[in-house]
Design a protein around this nucleic acid. Structure first.
Lengths: 260, 260
DNA sequence: CGCGTATTTGAAGGGCCTCAAGTATAGTGG
DNA sequence: CCACTATACTTGAGGCCCTTCAAATACGCG
């Protein structure tokens, strides 16, 4: 198997500069918020869109994404976010990462007091905010369809959270990291972003937190996967070289074959 | 503090028989489905209730809870359920337990094919099913309010799932089990069921699966907590004797004080 | 180009898992 | 109502995976 085809770019210093950018903006056509925008009576290029939806609102790296309206749905346009839940004693637990085109802030969309979940930008990002309150004056039939769609999006998010709960409990640290890489790649692919070679938006520390591992363990696993030829990794740049093997590892297969 | 009052029953053989039953049925007044039932135009004691809502539908121990209608919301009336997500290679991962008065089957309420999440009865149980499709002919205003409530319930469920994700990642096995016991107790209390002395509806094996631990570890932890006087445990019967200490442990406090 | 942050690497130790066997419970059927 | 039996719970010993602590290096941002 050795070096079968150099179709995948190697992470030589020369290739680093031409590596895909971090998290490029997605078009409205690939955004999960599109259905709600349309249902709100807004054409994508309509003039009213800019009025109701806060488009391209910038969020600085490390800053918290906060609702402008009491009740609203937020989507990521570019960059990446993380949602974390504080724990009584110790570090907050990261419960989800949000990539371009994905919805945020569905959980607790109606909570009154201080939000339990904090959402922070992992890099300079842009978000779109669709205020639900602006739409309450709509015709009852439209409001019903809108809220139904909202409920569907929320149940979809719940299902996604349960899937996450399932594979992050995978036996062994290798299974978890393999599952993580495949999850990120699949989500990039579903938004028509490069999914084989990409940059991880989050530091090792956040990956470790999310997977329930130590930061050093995540580092060692990246190196181990790299050494086995499953991936090529240099800092945040990652190339998936053997997705099938990663799937097998994520499913619990012991690593026996493949040269070290 | 020694034996300050024997208000809490000891788990002597004599007291076993008078121990609270497993998961007694909740009244409609304490059920999370009540708001949706009322909004659907159904008085709790209304004759139509029996027609639209499948009340007291029995589910045998180990049987799968399946929707009768394509789209519906299910609540637990008595007993207890577990929801599990299959994993590629190996045992399914339990993602949630459902106690009397709680909603189920929100996730995937709209999915078309075979459901990803399977919901099984941990003991002989009764469930109520409210078919959403039956209500689509309602007045638009009522439909709008109904779907809004549905969306709120869905986001609340998502928030609950994220909370679960946070404390089940607690550092150390002791923190996880302490958090688990407090979680169960709090949910019993919110439904006006006995929350200090109760029976765990699920076997050790399921607790271990849910918390990402080995079954033997869970057993040892129960015995350890029992030995330290934090709880009294005999099989599935549990009495919380020092909830404050359990909270401290769940928050990550090291166990140093308290006699062994 | 320099500094701060992020990543990497090593060594030692502990906590949880695995395997195995015995005991007690509770559900089942007569 | 009681006996029976399958399931669930408990307990012990040994070993490995992951964590912790510490320090050096590489990268990226201003």
């Amino acid at each position: 198997m050795s070096d079968s085809g150099n179709a995948t770019p190697l992470l030589t210093p020369a290739n680093r500069r031409r590596f895909p950018p971090y998290c490029p903006p997605v078009e409205c056509s690939a955004c999960a918020l599109l259905a709600l925008c349309r249902m709100a009576g807004l054409g994508v290029d309509d003039a009213r869109l800019a009025e109701v939806v806060g488009r391209k609102r910038p969020v600085a790296r490390g800053a918290e994404v906060r609702r402008r309206e009491r009740r609203s749905v937020i989507a990521v346009r570019s960059g990446a976010l993380k949602s974390e839940m504080p724990r009584p004693g110790g570090e907050a637990q990261i419960v989800a990462f949000h990539l371009p085109g994905e919805l945020v802030a569905l959980a607790g969309a109606d909570e009154q007091g201080a939000p339990e979940v904090r959402t922070l930008a992992l890099m300079p990002s842009e978000v779109c905010e669709l205020p639900v309150s602006e739409l309450l004056g709509f015709a009852p039939e439209d409001a019903a369809r809108f809220h139904l769609r909202l409920a569907q999006d929320a149940t979809a998010a719940l299902l996604a959270a349960q899937r996450t709960l399932a594979w992050t409990r995978g036996e062994g640290a290798e299974a978890r990291l393999a599952g993580f890489l495949l999850d990120i790649a699949a989500r990039f692919a579903s938004r028509e972003l490069p999914a084989q070679a990409f940059r991880l938006p989050m530091p090792r520390r956040d990956i470790a937190n999310f997977l329930g591992l130590a930061e050093e363990t995540v580092c060692r696993l990246f190196r181990r996967f790299h050494g086995r030829g499953w991936i090529a990794v240099s800092g945040k740049r990652v190339v998936l070289r053997d997705p099938a093997k990663l799937r097998a590892v994520a499913a619990g297969a012991a690593a026996d074959a493949s040269p070290a």
